[in-house]
């Protein structure tokens, strides 16, 4: 099963701490002072409507529409998650339209090439941009660790099994009550 981060709307208070943590976790070490209106591109977004506040991000679908829609096989399943191979991304935006949750985006980043002594600017490069589960971050998903109300959880097979077990137990209890 692919892992994914899930948000609990009855706990979310709409504070956007997760957004900042996500942007920071992908800032290549620039730290908070590197953040600004242009560079702020979190892969998780807090959504507030009249009745709901919650965070939305990639579900790391098992049969992912974004993966299926990519003409250049840039989106792959890796380490129990859906990941983008940025070198292969064309910026065609098929995946953006394919994702039913609106959590895939295409952004442009400055493209550079490093030589031994110099950095060469190559204009801009498109990137399919979405939650990568903070892959490679030792402490795991940054958003989950900062949420002040613990509204976010990392769901892996074990967490999912535990949730399902609890739901079945509740269903059984409810069934027993109905029978009694």
């Amino acid at each position: 099963m692919n892992r994914f981060v899930t948000a609990n709307p009855s706990k979310c208070i709409g504070c956007r701490t997760c957004e900042v943590a996500c942007a920071l976790a992908h800032s290549d070490g620039a730290g908070v002072e590197g953040l600004g209106p242009e560079s702020f591109k979190p892969r998780i977004r807090m959504v507030k409507t009249a009745d709901v506040s919650t965070a939305v991000m990639c579900h790391h679908c098992e049969d992912a529409p974004c993966v299926n829609s990519c003409p250049n096989n840039a989106i792959v399943y890796r380490q129990h998650s859906v990941q983008v191979e940025q070198e292969r991304c064309l910026g065609c935006k098929n995946c953006v339209l394919a994702c039913p949750f609106g959590v895939m985006d295409v952004v442009t980043v400055p493209a550079v090439r490093q030589f031994a002594v110099m950095t060469l600017s190559l204009g801009v490069k498109a990137q399919a941009h979405k939650c990568d589960l903070c892959i490679g971050r030792d402490a795991g998903p940054a958003c989950v660790s900062v949420c002040p109300t613990n509204a976010l959880t990392l769901m892996d097979r074990d967490a999912m099994d535990e949730t399902l077990r609890r739901r079945r137990e509740r269903a059984a209890l409810e069934a027993a009550e109905v029978a009694a």
Partner: peptide, 9 residues
């Protein structure tokens, strides 16, 4: 603060 100013200005 960079992050806070980014969220609301």
């Amino acid at each position: 603060c960079a992050a806070l100013q980014t969220l609301a200005d």
